[in-house]
Amino acid sequence: MMKTSHLIATNAIALSLMCLSPNLTANAYAETNTADPCKTQANTIEINECAKSELAKKDKALNAAYQMLIKKLAPTDKFDDINYTEVKKQLLEAQQNWIKYRDTDCKAKYTLNEKGTIRGVVHLGCLIERTEQRTKELLNWNPD
């Protein structure tokens, strides 16, 4: 059990550090009075808001990678007899199944921590990690 709690704490700290802005000092914050939760990280709500913002960026990158791959799945010349329609259909099905996997896997982590305030950042951190992994997979997917 100690390994799990250590891993959860490590993930939460890593996510918090990822969202922190190293160039923002307390004085600069007081002067700018910004509403960006990734620049303040003053409480759990801001940590979660920052993670949500990071997840939105990762989702955007995932969607771009998917769309780029779909566009690559086309005949290269008139002798190319690959059934790209079927390949795209299977890729779509795989992507839909992956989304179900990601969401369910990360929901399990949320449920494991549902009694603690860390539940949100653990859940969001999981979604971010899985989304980054899938984006890399799609970018490395070889349509040739």
Rank of each mutant, 00 (worst) to 15 (best):
A64L: 12
K100C: 01
I47A: 10
H123A: 08
K52V: 04
A30C: 06
R119Y: 01
L55H: 06
S53L: 06
V122P: 00
L127V: 05
K100W: 02
P37G: 03
E54I: 08
E86K: 15
T44K: 06
K71R: 12
D103C: 07
N48L: 04
E129W: 00
A94P: 00
T104K: 08
C19F: 01
C38D: 03
S5N: 12
A42V: 09
D80T: 06
K58I: 04
A56E: 07
T104E: 14
Q95K: 05
R102D: 07
T76R: 13
K39V: 04
A12G: 00
E129L: 05
R134K: 12
Q96S: 10
K39I: 04
I128Q: 00
D105T: 13
T25L: 08
L91Y: 11
K78S: 13
L92P: 02
K71A: 15
M18F: 10
N23W: 04
E114V: 03
Q96D: 10
A65T: 06
A51Y: 00
E46C: 05
N27G: 11
S53N: 11
C106L: 07
N48P: 02
Y110N: 01
S21C: 05
L55G: 00
E132Y: 03
P75C: 06
Y66L: 11
K71G: 07
N142L: 09
N11W: 11
I8E: 02
R119K: 15
D105F: 11
G125S: 02
N63P: 03
W141H: 12
K52A: 10
K72E: 13
L69M: 09
Q95C: 07
L92T: 14
M2N: 14
N11L: 15
E49H: 08
K60C: 02
A14C: 07
A74F: 09
A74T: 15
T4V: 14
N113E: 12
T111A: 10
C38P: 01
C126M: 05
I82R: 11
A56P: 02
A65K: 06
D105C: 08
A108H: 07
I8D: 05
K88Q: 12
E137L: 11
Y84H: 11
N27H: 11
A26V: 10
I45D: 07
R130W: 00
T117I: 08
